[in-house]
Design a binder for these strands. Structure first.
Lengths: 231, 231
DNA sequence: CGTGCAGTTGAGCAAATTCAACGCTTGTGG
DNA sequence: CCACAAGCGTTGAATTTGCTCAACTGCACG
């Protein structure tokens, strides 16, 4: 391995323009009543702005109102591993322990609901629904990371195919999807190099599996076959 | 990739000899009071016996009393991915949703405390401590899987070194550790082949980093340097 | 003492990385 | 408005890592 060092990603820190807009929240697909989203303040983050840093105390939870968030960790050899992408409606920040294992950054402009962990815990003591929701969300995150593990032991083609399908069923605009992140982000999520990601996407297009619209748009031409490739 | 199909691992199903022994449980390192372990029945499992299967309903939680447990998933290409190893004192089975994503099997003889999920949830409604513990344990599992992700994007040498250190700090008998699992299990956990695991261990021994005692024993000769290799 | 399983070691090969060059788009300043 | 620089993405060629195939060793068990 020993791949090239990842581009520094100089966070252009524009932390908190504190726009209190949009107290109405987009509801979660299969969710019941969601008392959690009724609180917290929506905050705007700019491109590559850091929401929280590795090693910082984990005393807030977050919900994406708009935009996309990535969690990342810089490895000792300079590479970067992306832990997850969070789309509008997703909650994140469920780290255990005092310190963040990954940092979180906005990809492009994003509006994020910031919620104090202590507030939620205090609520959970009296409200079983909140307690249960915190547990459920953490378990869901656990399942997501386990699927990530499964992605990482496959071939480059299977990883990229799996990634496209994952984004498709989350972004969900038919078979056309817009990838909000750069090739480098995809590569760091999949444990590949940008060259391999690029080549693999080109290969899939050459095989008629997908169609690339610019560098952000992808049309899944044969989702079923793509599913086979994802193994 | 496309590595060799993993050995079938014919589970010699000896599910429940129901030995009600040892209601006293080994306490967890940094744990507070642990009301969870006071319930449930200790059950004996034989070598490779299945504790639960992929796709089965996730309606129990488990605590290892003695022995070692692995969770595994068979991939569509025949390979097997190990999700985790659980040592005495560890709890497992925190899957989200109705179905198990991985199966769980005993490695060698094991005694497992089996706890009904519904019982715990009913308890948690009235006892905040239980509710909190369930959440904490799930979050801890999440952190473990995230570290697993980090292992899988490294070189073979780094993966094996990291694995040895992980086992060392959990098994914790100084710098000497006994690996309860086969090479195939280690390989499937690390996303490598048994040949690569074997070669890497031999290489580490040749470099004086470790000493191999038979095929199960390992002495960490230079843990600090090994930590460097694990990157 | 033979059989089977676990583990090790060797040689060749394939997949993904590294190194390098080039093209496209965007934004900026003259 | 154009020139140019910078960032992002793609493509090509050489290299490296870890896999595949295969042989062989040690050990336990009947």
């Amino acid at each position: 391995m020993l791949m090239r060092a990842t581009s520094p990603s100089v966070a252009s820190k524009s932390p908190a323009k504190s726009l209190k807009s949009s107290a109405k929240s987009p509801t979660w697909p299969p969710a019941g009543p969601d008392p959690i989203v009724l609180m917290g303040a929506a905050t705007a983050f700019g491109r590559n702005a850091e929401i929280y840093g590795e090693g910082q105390p984990a005393d807030h939870l977050y919900k994406v109102v708009s935009g996309t968030v990535r969690t990342a960790k810089i490895l000792s050899d300079g590479r970067r591993q992306i832990g997850a992408f969070y789309l509008p409606g997703d909650m994140f920040g469920f780290d255990h322990g005092a310190e963040r294992a990954f940092s979180a950054e906005a990809i492009g402009e994003a509006s994020i609901l910031v919620i104090e962990r202590a507030t939620l815990i205090a609520l959970a003591v009296h409200d079983t629904t909140v307690a249960r929701e915190l547990w459920t969300l953490t378990a869901r995150e656990l399942a997501r990371v386990q699927r990530h593990v499964l992605l990482l032991v496959k071939t480059a083609q299977a990883r990229v195919s799996g990634f496209l399908l994952e984004m498709a069923e989350r972004g969900a605009a038919g078979d056309t999807l817009a990838l909000p992140m750069l090739r480098q982000d995809i590569a760091d999520y999949l444990g590949l190099t940008i060259e391999t990601v690029s080549r693999t996407l080109s290969g899939l297009e050459a095989d008629g599996m997908i169609e690339l619209i610019g560098s952000r748009g992808v049309v899944l031409r044969k989702p079923a076959l793509l599913g086979r490739l994802a193994a």
